[in-house]
Design a protein around this nucleic acid. Structure first.
Lengths: 119, 119
DNA sequence: CCTATATATCAACTATTGTTGAAGCGTAGA
DNA sequence: TCTACGCTTCAACAATAGTTGATATATAGG
């Protein structure tokens, strides 16, 4: 991930409605949620949601697939991961014993194992 | 961390100059960097940098201390950690075996151990 | 106490971003 | 093929954020 992508991703997350969308999708898991459900969850007009979904998609934070009349959105876990990596890269000039917060970040997800999703 | 703080933090990181400041400080480690050095590193006027530093400080992403004539800024590792935690909280509805990206995020920092910095 | 250095604040301007309503496309079922 | 539904696109407006230059505060040294 380069700076331009990271900027797009952080800017995308720095907006109330978009952050709620991403959190809803992260919670929902790989099955995702339909655009209509998201509009209700977040509480905005569908026309406005569309704008934000495009923004998030562009930033690589969500993906979409059509399913009948609905469009289903889901979190792009690899994109989220890359973003955190970008932020923490080169931390403490190669003395990571002081940059433990990433450990805490991991703990929040309670992920015991796994290696399939990250590109 | 609540939504308001997370929004402030992500919005802060979604700006070219502020993202560069944070990355420079994350790289620098706990010793931090003087405002003047940051202005040169990032390539903006000091008056403009001040504005961005206030924004980052407000968002809980950096801290500052005075040292002689200079003001030294450093990354708030706990704040960064909280932010990632907020984003990943409740992921996959309690089925974390699918949300492994946080593992990758951790790997980026190569932190073997540590528990002192996170509040 | 005066000057130089380092950083912060303020007010004005400019640029960017978010919201809304109207209209358009794709899919499903009658 | 006609109608209904779900979602997206477009153009206009409203709101917010970033930059700049002038001015102010704090510290250190002469």
């Amino acid at each position: 991930m380069d700076e331009r992508q990271a900027l797009a991703a952080f800017a995308a997350l720095g907006q109330e409605h978009r952050l709620r969308v991403v959190r809803a999708l992260v919670t929902a898991g790989p099955d995702g949620l339909a655009a209509g459900v998201l509009a209700d969850t977040v509480g905005i007009a569908s026309t406005n949601l569309s704008f934000h979904l495009k923004e998030l998609s562009h930033a690589g934070l969500i993906t979409s697939r059509r399913e009948g009349k609905s469009v289903i959105y889901s979190a792009a876990y690899a994109g989220l991961s890359d973003l955190v990596q970008f932020l923490m890269r080169d931390c403490c000039q190669g003395h990571p014993e002081v940059c433990n917060p990433a450990v805490a970040a991991l703990a929040a997800c309670n992920c015991p194992t796994g290696d399939t999703l990250h590109a």
